[in-house]
Nucleic acid binder design. Structure first.
Lengths: 240, 240
DNA sequence: ATACCATACTTGTTTAAACAAGTCAAGCGT
DNA sequence: ACGCTTGACTTGTTTAAACAAGTATGGTAT
């Protein structure tokens, strides 16, 4: 799949780090060594390393080498990272999953919706509410709005399977950037009605805007997670 | 303070985008145009653009240009992003702040602590609990552990001010990578004792490991936030 | 008018080279 | 034994160039 050289090298290094072939806390081979190993220029090696550093797999040490700081994560809960569909996440986390569509409508964005979602006012939108089941427990309530001119032809059937799959495979549109905000909100009546909240009175809420390959925002999503099955991972780098 | 060319360009572009001098939804000048503007090579321009894309400010469109997708954030709540100290965040969010140190101890990591934090077993650690006040409300409970060999000489006085400031300015150590996990946890008795939780029975919890310029993990932190003053932002890019 | 194609843009990938700057250890002189 | 310099490493920054590939526009032939 990867056509670019740096991606091949990136994936190879990533695999070797995850399999501990390159052990944690050790150093990677030097850039010049890897130039010999992979038969490419130093810049290409550096690009692969930069991506690994971005994900918290390694950290470059000026004058010393590239330290591996990868540590395997515990798979206890539902882990989120990157842009992933519910289906992809479920598969990656080895969970049985199921989706119930509880609302499917077409709406026009009024001023308030436009303000909250980032869509232009009077946009034609699909409005979808879905309940996500993991291991037969109702854990996530998703509210999605899709920009109809960009994502035409949505149906409840597609919503029950995977909308992202439809967008990427059927519409041939690429999904690139996603801006997300994470908050913790008090449970609403709708949450309590559809989710098995036990006695939690809060939810982990991820709100996000997604942009396609043309730089157009086509989706606003709010995912409301039951607290005990929610985990979000992140790697940050400090700016000077 | 930026000494590298690409950082100067990055900051200049960032400023122009934030000030809407380059308006949102528009395109940046082409790379070759900017080569002329900044008097540098195309690679240097591209590096600056890459950083902006990383932060969700722009998105490159193959063959078309670089679209600006920046949108100003609402400053309603306490926003987290990047690696920042409480003090820095408070200042950036224009809040009055105050820290109370409720515990300051030196401990040795047993097996359980080592497992949970990622420190080696039998590490000598500082163990610090602090309550963070914003606008005179007790909102955050911080539990910090610092690796004593790397961060020597900590005192309760430093903990009340800013430990990061001490590390960077007094010890001259650089802080680079931070790996974080965000979860939502049930409030404990300690939370209820020290924070004004109202009737929330959950907290937003950010757990993180921080690495210094030598690639050594020197800090484990758990920040427990009252839900209504918590917001975490993130930008993700989808991998092919 | 329409369909097609050439062309002049745009960004994406890769190479090669040079120099800066940080690290480390061997070896030298005191 | 100690401190210093030197040189051989390491990563960091920047340039220049070439080619690939996607996009848009205008002109041409139909």
């Amino acid at each position: 799949m990867p056509k670019a050289k740096f991606e091949v090298i990136y994936k190879d290094l990533k695999r070797k780090i995850e399999s501990l072939e390159y052990p944690s806390l050790g150093l990677l081979p030097s850039e010049n060594t890897m130039v010999g190993i992979y038969g490419c220029s130093r810049n290409t090696i550096r690009r692969a390393i930069a991506e690994l550093a971005e994900e918290g797999y390694v950290q470059s040490l000026h004058g010393k080498g590239v330290r591996i700081i990868y540590q395997p994560i515990d798979q206890a809960s539902f882990t989120i990272g990157g842009i992933e569909s519910f289906k992809e996440s479920a598969v990656r986390n080895h969970k049985k999953y199921y989706t119930e569509v509880i609302q499917f409508a077409e709406i026009t964005a009024d001023e308030r919706v436009a303000q909250r979602t980032g869509f232009p006012a009077n946009s034609e939108l699909y409005y979808i509410q879905r309940v996500r089941y993991l291991e037969n427990k109702a854990l996530i309530l998703d509210v999605n709005m899709f920009f109809k001119p960009i994502v035409p032809g949505l149906t409840p059937e597609i919503a029950r399977d995977s909308i992202y799959e439809y967008i990427e495979n059927k519409l041939g549109m690429s999904i690139i950037t996603s801006k997300r905000k994470m908050t913790v909100e008090r449970a609403t009546e709708i949450d309590e009605k559809h989710l098995e909240l036990n006695d939690y009175n809060c939810l982990a809420v991820v709100s996000g805007q997604t942009y396609n390959g043309d730089g157009i925002m086509f989706e606003y999503t709010q995912s409301r997670h039951r607290p005990d099955y929610f985990c979000f991972q992140d790697t940050a780098t400090r700016k000077r």
